[in-house]
Amino acid sequence: MRRTGTTRRGALTATGAIAMGAVLAGCGGDDGRAGPEKSARPGARTAADRSPAEVSLRAAARSVSTALFAQYEAVVAAHPETAAGLTPLRDAVRAHITALGPGDTLGLVRTRPGTGGAGAAVRELAAAERRAAASHTEALMKAPPELARLLASVAAAASAHAYLLTALAKETKA
Rank of each mutant, 00 (worst) to 15 (best):
L24E: 10
M1Q: 15
T4Y: 04
L12D: 07
A19W: 02
V23D: 01
G10K: 02
G21T: 12
G29H: 07
A11D: 09
L24F: 03
P42N: 15
A40P: 09
T7I: 03
L24N: 07
G16V: 03
R3L: 08
R9M: 05
T6Y: 01
D31Y: 01
L12R: 06
A19K: 00
L24Q: 06
G10T: 08
A19Y: 00
D30Q: 11
A25Y: 04
V23L: 05
M1Y: 05
P36Q: 14
G29R: 07
G35I: 02
R9D: 09
A14W: 00
T15S: 11
A25K: 07
A34N: 13
T4S: 12
G21I: 06
G16Q: 03
C27H: 13
R2K: 12
L12A: 10
G5D: 03
A34H: 11
P36R: 10
G21P: 00
T13Y: 00
E37F: 05
G29P: 05
M1S: 14
V23A: 09
E37G: 14
I18F: 07
D31E: 08
T13N: 04
G28S: 13
L12C: 14
G16N: 04
G21K: 05
D31A: 15
T13S: 10
R9W: 01
A19H: 02
G16P: 00
G26L: 02
E37W: 02
S39G: 13
G26K: 02
G5K: 01
G29K: 07
G26A: 11
K38R: 08
G29Y: 01
G10W: 02
D30C: 11
A25M: 10
A25I: 11
A14G: 10
T13D: 04
L24K: 07
G5Q: 04
P36K: 11
A40K: 14
G29S: 12
T13P: 02
R41G: 12
M20K: 07
G26W: 00
G26Y: 01
A34P: 05
K38I: 13
T15L: 06
R33F: 03
T6S: 13
T13A: 08
A34T: 14
G35D: 05
R33T: 12
R33P: 04
G5F: 02
G16W: 01
A17V: 14
A19D: 02
G35K: 04
E37T: 14
E37A: 14
A22E: 08
M1T: 11
K38L: 07
M1C: 13
G26F: 00
G26C: 09
L12N: 07
L12K: 06
D31C: 10
R41T: 14
T6R: 07
R33N: 12
S39D: 15
P36D: 15
G28V: 15
